[in-house]
Nucleic acid binder design. Sequence first.
DNA 1: CTATAATATGAGCGATAATTCGTATTTTGT
DNA 2: ACAAAATACGAATTATCGCTCATATTATAG
Lengths: 208, 208
Amino acid sequence: MARKPLLKARKTASQERSRATVDALVEATARILVKEGFDKASTNRIAEVAGVSVGSLYQYFPSKEALVAAVVDRHQQEITETVRGELAKVSAMPIDEAVRQLVAVAVKAHRVDPRLHHVLAEQIPRVGKLENLASFNRENFVLFRDFLENHRDELRVDDLELASFICVTSIEAFTHNAVLHHSRMLSNEKMEALIDEGTRLVAGYLKG
Amino acid sequence: MARKPLLKARKTASQERSRATVDALVEATARILVKEGFDKASTNRIAEVAGVSVGSLYQYFPSKEALVAAVVDRHQQEITETVRGELAKVSAMPIDEAVRQLVAVAVKAHRVDPRLHHVLAEQIPRVGKLENLASFNRENFVLFRDFLENHRDELRVDDLELASFICVTSIEAFTHNAVLHHSRMLSNEKMEALIDEGTRLVAGYLKG
DNA sequence: CTATAATATGAGCGATAATTCGTATTTTGT
DNA sequence: ACAAAATACGAATTATCGCTCATATTATAG
């Protein structure tokens, strides 16, 4: 590796041209991660695929890590866009229906870009800035906790914190594994069955 | 990196001395992973910490990957040792008690070497031979499925495959996350509460 | 039109790390 | 005791990779 970086603060793209460059770089990173794997995602290769020079890359991203982080952010935002709104209605629903909706949304979220999700979850070493990569579900956790609070009297759980932890963790786990490790499951019937059973698991628990 | 490997098949340690070398290498790898992180685990450093030469390292391990795989295997075996036997008794128990035992064992397994488990789960890019690293729970899955089969008539689930998948995945997820990401949870009371609630979640689901 | 700022370029530096291989030491069988 | 086999050694090789910087091109403002 090279000596200590001298270029510290990167420029913020202000012209149209440079915004396109930034986009191309993030997009190229995502493409390489998916099609060639984390190993092959060198800064030189990323620049090449993006159709720009390495120099340009370092104009906007201080490190390779920052690029990957940008990909994570973008992916996270796409998921959030998918989920947001679908969750607003949930508060008004009866528990069973609400839970079913939540599980269904979790599946939907994992299907936004499964291959990228897979790479981000399995191949990226969570070191440095990427340590916090498990915060995938921070927002989900808060939303779910609020949901429980709104229905406190209908539920047979006293520790809402603990209940949220168990529910969110479980939903995340079985949807994640179903979508990413058992692609044969992806037939629509199987997926419906998964949602049914996942709903039973969580709703049953909450209602005591 | 160097040119194509010429040394293909590594020797199998036959003398006492070499077995000690192999052990030292695996142990050193584990120590470095835990104390310095995956990045610092270079083959030269591993050899140094093990107190042997890099040359010796390559006598027994064809690649760095193989070394990490050996660490994974060793860890897996320690866990299996912990779990095996505790599960034999389970078949004879009533569902609630059995499930509680299963959840408790999952927690215990995660506590065998939490720091190593953490590194293996979070910092190792699952590429090449390590792709299969998620098979952590293959055996668990089979054991659980058998358990369900033995209690088929007492349960309100028809698809045992799906039920096993959901239960094992969920148990693994909330025990893993509790032990590795919420160390403040480790107070024994909190841990008991986790086991209580986890048991309710799973047992409730199975009994309909 | 021209000066100045923004953006783009890419050869190459410096560092690191995986792996090899010729040689030295130790163990084993006889 | 001696030869052969096993084991150990570690400097050197080689590939790769992150990153910089001197220079060129393009856009913007006055």
